[in-house]
Design a protein around this nucleic acid. Structure first.
Lengths: 141, 141
DNA sequence: AATTATTTGAGACTCATTCACAATAAGGGC
DNA sequence: GCCCTTATTGTGAATGAGTCTCAAATAATT
């Protein structure tokens, strides 16, 4: 059994939820693609591959995945939210071009550390964060 | 004429928009309150004070104010966006409690600087950013 | 004052997301 | 494997924040 399937089973069990074909299909579709996609993209791709899962189920499954840190939700400021899986990928944040919508990832450990310090200082238990830079990308300038 | 009124006039002029009672009323309502409020909060307060401005106009005016850096839009992850004015207030980011919804502000110049460096490195022209820490606040723990 | 262009208000509309509920499928015990 | 209980699914309707349309009102220009 693949590592990802294993991971899904664990999380579902932890949440007291059942392991179903639909949930596996959704997780599988998300984890085998490295793009930033919205629910409809994911739904349509599944459908194109002959896997009929309802949109509602995609939403419901993603909620669980997001809550359990397997998927990151990305509010890109306009239109539907986008999602990306977090397996085998180092943590990163995003730069979003307000002209062409292109999303670029960036990593900065110093920022991460400072962030942790701030949270500690306020006795705030950090669960997740959003750090997005909006602007004009190199190509659009 | 107050400094804030002056500022609004300038921005509207720059945008090729007219200075109207409604736009002044919305800006005034926002700039004289230091809380994080959504469009409906602002609309209802105006209405309570006998100032009848339509919801659509509040949305439209806020768009202009956000675009011109007079107001910050805050996506709090659930429900409608909140807004706060940016006059006389040093730049800050937000910690949002996912339990009680409380919003706390924090300032960290080092993070701001690092952020600028990252943008520079990618030749990305930074227009604005979102940096939000989600977690459990001191009181909710 | 007349003309032209912008803004406003009201409500219809959009569209992402959530919900309700009947039908279906999982998991546990036998 | 079969039954029973309980969770999950699909469907389509509902929700709700935000946007749009358009006629009437207001502002700027002549």
């Amino acid at each position: 059994m693949s590592k990802n399937k294993e991971k899904l089973k664990m999380v579902l069990h932890k949440e007291g939820l059942r392991f179903t074909n639909q949930r596996e299909a959704v997780w599988n579709e998300i984890v085998t693609c490295d793009e930033h996609r919205n629910v409809d993209d994911i739904y349509m791709t599944l459908r194109k591959n002959g896997i009929l899962v309802s949109r509602a189920t995609v939403y419901r499954t993603i909620d669980v995945l997001v809550k359990n840190n397997m998927v990151r939700k990305l509010d890109v400021g306009v239109g539907p939210s986008k999602f990306e899986h977090k397996m085998n990928a180092p943590h990163h944040d995003h730069m979003i071009c307000i002209q062409c919508g292109r999303i670029e990832e960036f990593v900065d450990d110093q920022i991460e550390n400072l962030q942790d310090s701030v949270a500690k200082e306020y006795e705030f238990k950090l669960v997740r964060h959003i750090h997005q830079l909006f602007g004009i990308c190199k190509d659009c300038q």
